[in-house]
Simulated assay, not measured.
Amino acid sequence: MSTQTPRSPQAGSDTAPLRAAGSPMRPDGAAASARRGSRWTFWLIALICAAPIAISYFAYYVIKPKGGSTSYGTLIEPQRPIPDALTVTGDDGQTIPLSSLRGHWLMISVDGGACGEPCATKLYFMRQVRATQGAERERVETLWLRTDDAPVAQVLKTAYPDTRMLRADPAALVQWLPAAQAMKDTDHIYLVDPNGNLMMRFPAHPDPSKIKGDVTKLLKWSRIG
């Protein structure tokens, strides 16, 4: 009986041996997996970097722990934009919209031109809070909105050369600036953000170190203005 020698498998034939188990993945599959891994790594790093900023805003504007808000000043909710019709007049007689001063953090005091002791105290506090911001102080502008035509004493002009002293309609200011219960707008210092939104009111007879704390945090957390 004759025997036949088994033929070696032909290249490309159906009998070619299967790839051994555990052989490497196809190159295109490995590249796709690597790309997916890189994307996940990128988003994880971005999340880690953004988390402190997001948490700080959430803590300042949203969380209100027992005992009150995290801020010393009272947050104005909802925010009140500067009314388009609200104008102010300088000693040079030029009248401009108050909204044209947007772009800085505005600390505002309202009083008559005679400016008694409470008025002078507010001007002093605003000047000191601004000065203590160091290099960031240029982002803050202090305003005295005067409610009458009484002349400003030269001693005040000399003491507060960086405070803009502008006349405004007192009725329009009352409509825009909310006062605490049993208080008037002349009792408070107000803070307007660089977008022109009234956002905070400080109490009558305030603690300037606590005002400084609020302003410092806002300047630190916000890059606007």
Rank of each mutant, 00 (worst) to 15 (best):
M1H: 09
Q4K: 13
T5Y: 01
T5Q: 09
R7V: 13
P9Y: 09
A11K: 11
A16W: 14
A16M: 14
L18K: 13
A20K: 13
A21T: 11
A21S: 12
A21Y: 09
G22P: 02
L47K: 00
A50I: 10
Y60G: 00
Y72E: 07
T74L: 12
T74M: 10
L75P: 12
E77T: 13
I82W: 01
A85G: 07
V88T: 08
T89H: 04
T89F: 02
G90M: 07
Q94V: 15
H104M: 06
L106P: 03
L106N: 05
M107Y: 02
A114R: 13
G116H: 04
E117L: 11
A120D: 05
F125T: 01
R127P: 00
R127N: 09
A131G: 08
Q133R: 09
E138S: 15
T147M: 11
T147E: 10
D149V: 07
P151Q: 05
L156R: 10
T158N: 13
D162N: 12
D162F: 05
R167P: 00
A171K: 10
A171L: 08
L173V: 04
A180Q: 13
D187H: 15
H188A: 08
R201Y: 04
F202Y: 15
I211H: 02
D214M: 02
V215Q: 03
T216P: 00
K220V: 07
S222L: 09
R223H: 12
R223C: 05
G225M: 03
